[in-house]
């Protein structure tokens, strides 16, 4: 059960490496690592991700996917779907998924995910790291994509423990669905929780920037895009920023 086994820390460098350490030791499926504060929180490409002490949900879950690595695109998508549904069901917040699994509210980022996979004694593991802004109300200006939180959206503080419980339950439900029914079922759920399909987006891959139209996602989770010359390709990596998200809209932040 997700979150049933749990280790909580006042301060950690980051919950993901601690969870990976547990995975290597054979921690049970669904084991969670939470922290009040991360001294070295990070996102994709090691971007600094700062969260004030005790305000947000910082959690990493140890999982052992039964599906092969080439199907893990669905794993990436389901994390976003789970966060989206927690916000909707518990707080009536309408989130908008940004490929593959960031969650935006009105163009502002409320949650991010970083998944790290490897092999342990129990087989292939994937640590699903989630950072969800709960009670943070002031955000650094360094973020290019503006941020928001549950407290800012609802006008009142939320109970972090209740958010953790809801997150664990919802993530488990999505994970089981993916395991049993495959990535196509998750992709269908993902499509109904985003507004970015059919709209222009900026794609950043390394130093290059390009405007494309996001058309669809495949069952493998790849994002089908069309460039200005009408050529289509499927993306499996890189930053994709919906043009409607954020005023500056050319990256997540400048770390």
């Amino acid at each position: 059960m997700f979150g049933k086994t749990r280790q909580h820390f006042d301060t950690l460098e980051s919950t993901n490496p601690t969870a990976r350490g547990l995975a290597l030791e054979g921690a049970p499926h669904g084991a969670a690592v939470t922290a009040d504060y991360q001294s070295g929180g990070r996102g994709r490409s090691d971007r600094v991700w700062h969260s004030p002490r005790g305000e947000n949900l910082l959690v990493s879950y140890v999982t052992y996917p039964a599906r092969p690595m080439e199907e893990w695109g669905g794993l990436s998508l389901l994390a976003g779907v789970a966060i989206h549904d927690v916000l909707h069901e518990e707080f009536s917040i309408d989130g908008d998924l940004k490929w593959p699994n960031d969650v935006l509210v009105g163009g502002r980022k409320i949650a991010g995910v970083l998944i790290e996979g490897g092999r342990s004694v129990l087989g292939a593991y994937a640590v699903i790291g989630i950072g969800l802004n709960v009670n943070q109300r002031v955000f650094d200006a360094q973020y290019v994509l503006p941020a928001t939180s549950i407290a800012l959206e609802c006008g009142r503080d939320a109970d972090r423990e209740a958010v953790f419980e809801a997150m664990s339950k919802r993530l488990e439900r999505c994970f089981v669905r993916w395991t049993e029914r495959g990535s196509a079922a998750i992709a269908a759920a993902w499509r109904s929780r985003t507004t970015m399909l059919g709209r222009p987006a900026s794609v950043r891959n390394g130093a290059e920037m390009e405007t494309v139209t996001a058309l669809d996602i495949g069952a493998d989770g790849g994002l089908l895009v069309e460039d200005s010359l009408g050529r289509r390709r499927t993306l499996f990596a890189g930053d994709v920023i919906p043009r409607t998200a954020g005023e500056r809209g050319n990256g997540e932040h400048e770390a």
Binding site: M69, W72, G73, S76, E116, R119, G221, G222, A237
Partner: peptide
């Protein structure tokens, strides 16, 4: 069994052995 690289896909960082 040594990790030789990471392949990133769909914001998943996969250690490859």
């Amino acid at each position: 069994g040594s990790t030789v690289c990471i392949i990133e896909a769909m914001k998943i960082m996969n250690e490859i052995e």
